[in-house]
Write a protein that binds this DNA or RNA. Sequence first.
DNA 1: TTAAATCCTCGCAGAACTGTGGCAAAACTT
DNA 2: AAGTTTTGCCACAGTTCTGCGAGGATTTAA
Lengths: 231, 231
Amino acid sequence: MEKKLIYIADDEINICNIIKSFLLKEGYDAETFNDGRSLFEAYKSRPADMLVIDIMMPEIDGYSLCSMIRQQSSVPIIFVSAKDTDPDKIAGLTLGGDDYLTKPFSPMELIARVKSIFRRIKMDKAHHKNDQKLKVHDLVIDADSKEIILNGRSIGLTGMEFALLHYLAINIGRAVSRSELLDKVWGFENDVETRATDDMIKRIRKKLSEAGSSLVIETVWGFGFKIQNEE
Amino acid sequence: MEKKLIYIADDEINICNIIKSFLLKEGYDAETFNDGRSLFEAYKSRPADMLVIDIMMPEIDGYSLCSMIRQQSSVPIIFVSAKDTDPDKIAGLTLGGDDYLTKPFSPMELIARVKSIFRRIKMDKAHHKNDQKLKVHDLVIDADSKEIILNGRSIGLTGMEFALLHYLAINIGRAVSRSELLDKVWGFENDVETRATDDMIKRIRKKLSEAGSSLVIETVWGFGFKIQNEE
DNA sequence: TTAAATCCTCGCAGAACTGTGGCAAAACTT
DNA sequence: AAGTTTTGCCACAGTTCTGCGAGGATTTAA
């Protein structure tokens, strides 16, 4: 993943530089601007991943900038201002701000809040797509990406191998016969020897153990295969 | 849309009630708890849409509660605490908190922050539908100008190439079959060989690598193509 | 314990699939 | 209309996948 880009706008150059240096130290890319307009122009040509903006600025103030940006983008915005009254904070948050820090503030706290917001976005993204993921023992079976994931790392299964393991996984706890596998995984029009299933199982077992998974595909003697229910 | 449910945990009953009354007035449902354990139990049987929790509580403190909840849920969590030192705030935000308010706080500010977080979640959900500028790895995909931009410079993709890459980008993390691509990118009335997709992919890959992009379009053997989800 | 049935391992070769370069038709420009 | 770009198709080569046979290992049953 590329570095996140964060734009900072404040008319006090020192504040800009302090914030920037802390963000850089945390591994972010950062650009500073001394008024609202220049940040807005920069954002139009190159959108950033987050904005940290002051409220009192020449050209375009923070509130207006926030509103303008919000018309076309959902980029997270953190206000940083010397104005510390409740109405100020409430206005900033209501206009579309994601957070509001009052000066003077601890740079470490700003960093923590930046991270918190990125984490929130990431969680929202992950959760939204998360409907199809199937957890089996130590594996995550992702039908969307057709990947089997162990400890966050994908095990390289071929299409057939994936389809077979997936079928066993959704029928966890039930013994599945070879002929059923041929029907459902290979397709009923396909005529292969029933032993083909054994080959596929063999390969899956090998890859699983090489990858270090604890999942075992049990043989049901004279019948087929099964993944044991957990615990 | 049904009312959002918010759980509040604080050992001071008065605080609970104040927060609850403000939340109710804003149209949320709210339940109060006087220690961490009772909130956790309630959450297990009925998950809420947001948690507002104190740090110093009997049974289970706020930090521990946050960690426990985070193991299974991405529900937003706001800390409300009398502890106002930087390390406290940073700890709370780092452990998985979405915000941190120090007592005494303005109930109106709390409301504004609650709304801000819900708005963020909503924007994240709606994000990939109506955001015109889609970021994928090191590329920016601009649906308006039909341009793919790398480092502020446009890569010269043709219309078909753009449409195909755009479709893969929208479906990032999901393996897309050749036939789906023919349907959605070429249009279902069009009858071309499935290998036409390979040709287009070939050209896109070439242009991407010539432009110096790190984006790779993976082949899903026997199926189609996919852009890997970024970490 | 022994025999029979079944399963696992191994290597291999054919099958299936993909990547590449070239080419020409089609579409678009000038 | 001529030239340029785009795009689909083909053929070939290289890669990956997968079914199969045979022999050894394992389990069941008598």
